[in-house]
């Protein structure tokens, strides 16, 4: 198969791929950052004792988790202009990605906080620690071990999900492959190259995530 594979075309389109790689990278990073903020807010709201506040957050989390990202993306892409909000494709993509990922992150953080036994927090109160101290010395060290691995997992999911942005014509990695395919009629070259780039990102994130997990276990053992 290798003899049929046209590397020269890939070299010609390399700029396109690099632009795509960069776009996939920064869009994922920005969305992850926003998703972390959104997720934290949604999680705090979800844990609130006020029924209304926790209800609003529950509706957000459950509706995001129970519908496909592609539907959400189209919902904003086709829906926002019809209510008079005009933002470009990249912004629409980031909006959908961070709303979607935020819901998952909210659940991850919630699981982390709930994993800290109540007795530990009560013990902290009894020994006169302030809220900040309890957070810093009791809750966070225990919750982080539970939160960080799935959080890195959702970062990987986010990078892969950003491929859907190609469907609303954002130039990122998958779109670069589509462009090569449609201009040169070379789907193998186009999509295998795209896949290789994703695999490189995946491998890098996975190595980082394994390393981080080892670090966390190390800290817990102390």
């Amino acid at each position: 198969m290798l003899e049929y594979f046209n590397f020269r075309v890939i070299a010609q389109y390399l700029d396109q791929y690099l632009i795509g790689l960069l776009a996939t990278g920064w869009i994922s990073l920005v969305s992850l950052f926003l998703a972390l903020i959104l997720g934290t807010i949604a999680c705090v709201m979800r844990l609130s004792k006020n029924r209304l506040i926790s209800g609003v957050s529950a509706v957000y989390i459950e509706s995001m988790r129970s519908t496909p990202l592609l539907t959400q993306l189209y919902f904003f892409y086709f829906g926002l202009p019809s209510i008079g909000i005009n933002i470009n494709e990249v912004q629409t993509g980031i909006l959908a990605l961070s709303l979607n990922s935020g819901a998952y992150i909210a659940e991850i953080i919630r699981a982390g906080i709930l994993s800290v036994p109540r007795g530990h927090i009560e013990a902290g109160i009894a020994s006169g620690l302030s809220f900040i101290q309890r957070l810093r010395y009791i809750i966070l060290p225990q919750a982080l071990g539970v939160v960080v691995p799935p959080l890195l997992g959702s970062a990987i999911v986010l990078v892969k999900d950003s491929s859907l942005l190609s469907l609303i014509s954002v130039l990122e990695l998958t779109r670069a492959g589509q462009i090569l395919t449609s201009e040169r009629f070379m789907p193998a070259e186009g999509f295998f190259t795209t896949a290789v780039f994703y695999l490189v990102i995946y491998a890098a994130l996975k190595v980082f995530s394994d390393w981080a997990q080892k670090k966390l276990i190390f800290r817990e053992a102390h």
């Binding site: 892969k160 491929s163 469907l167 998958t174 492959g177 789907p187 295998f192 896949a195 695999l199 491998a203």
Partner: peptide, 22 residues
């Protein structure tokens, strides 16, 4: 497993639908 977990499903479906005919 790593090959399929490391690439977006969208790319996989393009590979199957557009490359297999080749």
């Amino acid at each position: 497993v790593n090959l399929l977990r490391g690439t977006p499903f969208l790319v996989q479906i393009f590979v199957i639908f557009f490359i297999l005919p080749e």
